[in-house]
């Protein structure tokens, strides 16, 4: 990885040693898989969408970083 940023690399990587995110896969229908992370308050946070249908990436309820709602359409 080569960075081109106005921030010094030490600042960007600060805390990198103690940073171990744990991801878990959940598969919804039609080849749609989500890579999720459990937050401290036990919510499910979407980390990444894995799908070959590009339109899945435009679904507002599946945007990375959002909390998975239990009434999600799948």
């Amino acid at each position: 990885m080569l960075n081109y940023s106005i921030y010094p690399l030490e600042l960007i990587l600060e805390g990198y040693e103690n940073f171990n995110p744990e991801y878990e896969e959940i598969s919804l229908s039609r080849g749609l898989t989500l890579l999720v992370e459990k937050t401290e308050s036990n919510e499910i946070k979407i980390g990444k969408i894995v799908s070959t249908d590009p339109q899945d990436y435009l679904r507002p309820e599946l945007q990375p970083g959002s909390i998975l709602k239990n009434d999600i359409y799948y």
């Binding site: 799908s51 590009p54 339109q55 899945d56 990436y57 435009l58």
Partner: peptide, 13 residues
Amino acid sequence: EHIIPQLVAIEEN
């Protein structure tokens, strides 16, 4: 990895 599929989706829609 989020941006690139979104760009494809936008182009396709």
